[in-house]
Simulated assay, not measured.
Amino acid sequence: MQKIVNGETIELTAEEEADFLASVMPLSLPTPEFISRRQFYQELANREMITKEEALAAIVANTLPSEFASMVDAILDEDIQWQARMLLAGATEFKRSNWFVDFFAAMKSLSSEYMDGFWRAGALLD
């Protein structure tokens, strides 16, 4: 996505694009409780949080994107780390209220509002 500033075309960063989309997306749209596995990984790729190749590999080969593998590895408690791996490996859909969503957001310094917008945008992907 691009914007024009003083007659110059400038590429938006993934974060700027996500902020813009969140600002124009109707706030009256409720945040869905669930998005599918495909919607989750596709929206991550749309926001350039993972590559398109990583998104496809996550769906086709159940390969964890490198950034997620690093975050899971950073969990010191073995039981919680195992729960996170099971969630990411076996989920057919992702629940907005799941603890790992908040963990991921905190690790990336993302606000709750940003994650709500992520879920709303993901739910719109057909």
Rank of each mutant, 00 (worst) to 15 (best):
Q2S: 11
K3A: 02
V5G: 00
I10M: 13
E11H: 04
E17M: 11
F20K: 08
L21C: 04
V24W: 06
T31S: 05
F34N: 06
I35M: 05
R38W: 11
F40Y: 07
Y41T: 00
Q42R: 09
Q42T: 14
E43I: 00
A45S: 08
N46L: 05
N46C: 10
N46Y: 01
N46E: 07
E48P: 00
M49T: 04
E53K: 15
E53H: 15
E53P: 00
E54L: 08
E54W: 07
A58Q: 00
V60W: 09
V60S: 14
A61W: 09
T63N: 09
T63S: 12
L64K: 00
P65F: 01
P65M: 00
S66C: 08
E67C: 02
F68R: 00
D73P: 05
I75M: 03
L76P: 05
D77H: 13
D77Q: 15
I80D: 08
A84N: 07
R85T: 14
A89C: 10
A89H: 14
G90T: 11
A91N: 09
T92S: 11
E93H: 15
F94W: 02
R96Q: 03
W99T: 03
V101N: 02
A105C: 14
S109T: 15
S112R: 13
Y114D: 11
D116L: 10
G117W: 00
G117D: 06
R120G: 02
R120H: 10
